[in-house]
């Protein structure tokens, strides 16, 4: 039997070695975070700017629709927390809803995680409409275009939403003028097709990286005003919240500043400077993603070198 050379061995490498390398490439950067720069893209900036334009207004609100379960939480949860943090910090009124039973605990978890550091009250600063059966999705979506209180009726605590403080100046999509759908699927299309087309509401998406490519046509056409794409989008949003909404003056008092591309370019935030881990989850995760992507590229290159050398050898013998 002919002895295998290094390239033949590379072709027949046991996949368990690959799994081991990938596991280490992901686990080590999560345990030992390093500082890497976060570059902010325009679709993320647009979502931030839109939400920030509602700061302090009682006649404007955003709707966060949770359309995913725990499997995609690693990518979507950090962006949900970052957006909620932005809203609580800048006094933007937030409404939340979900049409998947598995999304309801995630929605509660995100709100509870973000509100820990803020003095916010349900029904005043934010409101969870809770879980509504998926069969009512279209009815609710279209109904909110006329009257949210009629379409949704009660919040997750069974209170009539028309009696709540937060809804006093919010009637329909004219006031709740931004819908952000967090999904690992094409759930956002329904908002684009029905809410955007019929009522002109601004729609944005928080989406897993694998689904992001599907949404580019809608971004380019303007049907999506912005998009947070996977963990990268979440990391970008975390950074924007840190440098603008969470900005402090020289005495350490809150001093939020207006969005500016120049400030983004100049800003460099060390992960070690952010005390609370929950506000840098995506950026720590991006370390692992960077190493994992590099590993996959290295695997592709090594695999191809082995393939071409073996092929060349076969041709030579043949």
């Amino acid at each position: 039997m002919a002895k295998l050379n290094v390239f033949d061995r590379m072709q027949k490498l046991d996949r368990r070695w690959i799994y081991l390398v990938v596991a280490l490439a992901i686990i080590l950067p999560l345990i030992i975070p390093f500082n890497s720069k976060t570059y902010v893209t325009e679709p993320t900036e647009n979502v931030y700017k839109k939400i920030d334009s509602y700061a302090g207004r009682t006649d404007r609100a955003i709707l966060m629709c949770f359309s995913h379960d725990a499997s995609t939480m690693a990518e979507l949860f950090p962006m949900e927390v970052a957006i909620l943090r932005h809203c609580f910090e800048r006094k933007v009124r937030v409404l939340t809803i979900c049409f998947m039973p598995a999304a309801k605990p995630l929605m509660d978890y995100a709100i509870n995680t973000a509100k820990e550091d803020y003095d916010v009250q349900s029904g005043v600063d934010y409101l969870s409409f809770g879980y509504k059966p998926y069969s009512l999705f279209l009815i609710t979506l279209l109904g909110m275009g006329d009257d949210i209180a009629e379409a949704v009726e009660t919040d997750d605590q069974g209170r009539k939403i028309e009696n709540l403080e937060i809804m006093k100046e919010i009637t329909n999509y004219n006031e709740m003028n931004l819908v952000i759908d967090f999904a690992a699927s094409a759930a956002v299309y329904s908002w684009i097709v029905y809410a955007r087309a019929r009522f002109g509401v601004n729609v944005a998406a928080g989406i897993t990286a694998v689904m992001a490519a599907d949404n580019y046509p809608y971004l380019q056409s303007g049907q999506l005003i912005g998009m947070l794409s996977g963990l990268k989008g979440a990391a970008e949003y975390e950074k924007l919240v840190d440098i603008f909404a969470m900005n402090k003056d020289e005495y350490g008092n809150p001093d939020p500043r207006e969005f500016s591309k120049e400030i983004i370019k100049e800003s460099w935030i060390k992960l070690s400077d952010i005390e609370n881990r929950k506000y840098k989850t995506a950026r720590i995760g991006m370390n692992a993603q960077t190493v994992a992507h590099v590993m996959i590229i290295v695997f592709i290159i090594i695999g191809n070198i082995g393939y071409f050398v073996s092929k060349n050898k076969e041709n030579h013998i043949g």
Binding site: L13, R15, I18, Y19, V21, V22, A23, I26, A292, M295, I296, F299, I300, I302, G303, N304, Y307, F308
Partner: peptide, 15 residues
């Protein structure tokens, strides 16, 4: 998914 992608990239992603 990450493990399957890495393995597939190494074993099948050939030029």
């Amino acid at each position: 998914l990450a493990f399957h992608i890495a393995s597939a990239a190494y074993k099948a992603f050939r030029a």
